[in-house]
Design a protein around this nucleic acid. Structure first.
Lengths: 337, 337
DNA sequence: TTATAGTTTGACAGCGCTGTCATAAATATT
DNA sequence: AATATTTATGACAGCGCTGTCAAACTATAA
């Protein structure tokens, strides 16, 4: 097992002795509490500085009932998404001297509920953020609520009012992206759906359908295919779409990875993007600028969502934050006529 | 600020009362210590289970002098790398009921040293892993050593013997990748160097040079260009290489992102990969399978390295682990003649 | 001046565990 | 049966802080 903690770190009583005050006064100064004479405050600060003293997070946690830790439960499948969420949360945590506990999970884990329950019992987090697909699992929300801990859902798709949440308007984004296709002259539009367990899938599909409807375009069921959010599933879904004799002029993939799979399929079939088929994705993962042509997509403000989630947890902020998305036009859509 | 910790969690004394033993005995059972009668052990375990008791990490840390936390200091620039490292470390942590504290930093931060110093003082980590470029900064290693904390360097390039480390043989990998190019008939080979501060850059370049030398090929200095490990720097470095009248038949980019930048440049210039120019990269980031043609590269076992690093920290394992790399042949290299 | 309120400080308990050490019980040895 | 040895258990202190409350000190009002 790992070695013992270090020996030679200053404690609060070292500072108290040096500054000739009680440890409680040092505590007050370190926590910026009121009712400390300016002169005393300075003396303590100086003493702390000269000893290079930093309060122990552990001891503060135990004594104060706050852990200075918030958690993030995420699915390890989509590494970029998780990483961006972390980055945003950590940025906000640092402002409040908090730290982030990262808790990857997989929805396949049969002991998922127990694992999360144990986590909550062993570490008294001051709050927890839950990203998809976990934020849509009622059982998980139940056990969190049972602990009385505050939590925030990131991009939930069911039961929106249940708890604090951070999200973007995926329906609206999908609607506008579809509209973008229609406005460029596309009428034969296919759709590759995402993982049915991931809430975003439905919202994106509904936005797509609504746009078609508003523009009086019939959705051809042959061009609607099921994928699961990863590359190969996009390729496979594409195969099913192009099995049919008549083919669409544009395809909306419910996320970028499936769009990449679709592009690979098209490449193998000798079909050109966007000349033969236009493509749009969703998420704006880094790969969008690597594929050729670059992929037109919706940029999800993932880092901002992480930041906002931490903000809600630390600051008891507003219970719902809807962040703006951006449509990123690149080269994968052909303007017809 | 965040809410108070939850109210209704069982503590060790609840379990002790229910099992009719002292809290110390409960502690022994929870920590699998010897000298507890089997019958007592069972009674305690049952009581713990029925109360859904989990020992508080915080309290154990404070009392026991172990924090059950190890840290990872990483550069947030390269998200995939950091994420994979995290994944490996977390996997190993879970086996020992440890948790990972992620500490992104940027080398540009003027207060870098102070930030790390404060971190070490506020959280008594039981160990810390340092990835590039931080693992090559002597100042950082100094302050860690001053705390007496155990640490492990990930892919260091200077001063290898200084502390425990996990790495792969980058020199050898670069050598073999260059050899691969030579064996396919390439004699005019360029190189895009990586960030001079990142150690790997030098090792990779040296492996390249050694291979050329062993095969009696002169390195044309016009084809050796400086990049900084990110996409645009690869494009810019490519521009400099192709300024010269004579152009190489193959280029080795010191990492994949620069290879992608190079491919973008070539695409813009109407040059075909691999017909006109063969390309190899280094790292095997996910984008390698997105670009066309797919990039031949060296797969770094990053997740395994994270796992091994945590293993060393938690287990006082061997002081050095050299992990195997794999050359991944894809479509970006042309076999000449 | 004395009463009153507000400000500053410290004593002390205790957060939920583990380490140390003493004691009790079980087992082995003579 | 008496003693030595091992095994099992608990009492207690204390990890480094914060919360509570009371005491001391200062400013203001009457």
């Amino acid at each position: 097992m790992a070695g013992r903690a270090q020996q030679s770190t200053a404690t609060i009583s070292d500072v108290a002795t040096l500054a000739q005050v009680s440890i409680k006064t040092v505590s007050r100064v370190m926590n910026d509490e009121p009712n400390v004479r300016a002169q005393t405050r300075d003396r303590v600060k100086e003493a702390a500085k000269s000893l290079n003293y930093n309060p122990s997070m552990l001891a503060r946690s135990l004594a104060g009932g706050k852990s200075y830790l918030i958690g993030l439960i995420y699915d390890n499948i989509n590494s970029t998404y998780a990483h961006d969420l972390q980055t945003g949360m950590i940025a906000r945590c640092r402002l409040s001297k908090y730290h982030l506990m990262c808790e990857p999970q997989t929805s396949e884990n049969p002991d998922l509920i127990q694992a999360i329950s144990n986590l909550l019992a062993t570490i008294r987090l001051d709050g927890i953020a839950i990203s998809p697909p976990f934020c849509d699992m009622p059982q998980i929300l139940d056990i969190i609520e049972a602990t009385g801990m505050s939590y925030v859902r990131i991009s939930p798709s069911k039961d929106l009012g249940r708890a604090a949440c951070v999200r973007m308007d995926e329906f609206d984004a999908a609607y506008n992206l579809t509209k973008h296709l229609i406005e460029r002259g596309h009428k034969e539009i296919g759709f590759i759906r995402g993982h049915p367990q991931h809430g975003g899938s439905h919202l994106r599909f509904e936005g797509f359908c609504k746009a078609l409807k508003d523009y009086n375009i019939d959705a051809n069921q042959n061009w609607i295919s099921q994928g699961y959010f990863y590359f190969e599933s996009g390729r496979e879904a594409a195969r099913q779409i192009f099995e049919h004799s008549k083919r669409p002029s544009a395809i909306f993939a419910a996320n970028d990875y499936m769009a990449f799979g679709l592009m690979a399929y098209l490449h193998d079939m000798g079909l050109k993007v966007p000349e033969d088929v236009s493509i749009v994705g969703f998420d704006d993962v880094p790969g969008c600028q690597l594929v050729w042509p670059h992929l037109t997509t919706i940029h999800q403000p993932v880092t901002d969502m992480g930041y906002a989630a931490a903000e809600i947890l630390l600051n008891n902020g507003p219970k719902e934050r809807v962040l703006p998305y951006r449509m990123i036009e690149r080269g994968s859509v052909l303007k017809k006529e």
